[in-house]
Amino acid sequence: MSEKKLLKTEAEIYENGWKKIDLVLTEQSLYLGSMKILLREIEDLELVTIDNLKCIKIKKDGEIIFTIPEKLLNKIYRFLAYNLRSDRFAVYFLSPATVGGVVVKDVQWEKGYLSITDGGIWFLSPKKQVRISLENLGSVDRDVRTVGGKQRVVLVVSHVENSEVVTSFILCPETTLEMLGEYIQRLIDSQKPQAELTEIEKQILTLIYSGLDSASVESIIGISSDELNEYYDNLVNQGLARVVRIRKELELTPKGVSLVSDIQKSQNIVG
């Protein structure tokens, strides 16, 4: 190995159970036992918990999961996040700016990067590495906000986290902002359901989001249980909801939640 070693430590890799290996990190590669992974070939990255252990999941021609002592795990995660294969743009970001429409206090603008991978977008700074998977992205809009006492055009990116709509703001030179907005919009469009929903399906989706049970949905929409079940099947088939109980009770998937948010926005535009 001619590359400069940055770190060597014991680790465990998950391959039908945990196996002890040596982990070596260099400027260009990650070695897990005899496996060499070029950092620029890592497609995406995620923190996951397996067997109550905090692990790093690497996406590269499949998935590779490993764990190391927590003190080092966060450092390696940050290093990999900065070096994986992505389109990276220097930006200022504020994340999360709002959660469920409520402004988050004590969050500050950070200088860092917006990094776009095959599986998601990242807000990266030395302090923060926030990953938002593409399926959880809801919308991207331009808006004017007061930043450092000045009125500035920012991008407002919304996504779904724990069934709530979360927004983050991005600030960068205007020409980059426009290009980034279009880029993120294309990513969002690529995740949207192909089929158009009927007005009743949109209303049912909104009622499920609001937490109403089947009986209430039937009474508000004015349909029978059998009819509602047909609508439910359609929502489930489109990946917008999943069944959580027999005598179908549904909960929305992130895709469904972000669609409800869009429905509300379009209704507010028309009045």
Binding site: G100, G101, V102, T206, Y209, S210, G211, L212, V260, S261, I263, Q264, N268
Partner: peptide
């Protein structure tokens, strides 16, 4: 209250 509504909120 924020739309879309969530009943508990």
């Amino acid at each position: 209250i924020i739309k879309p509504f969530q009943a508990p909120k």
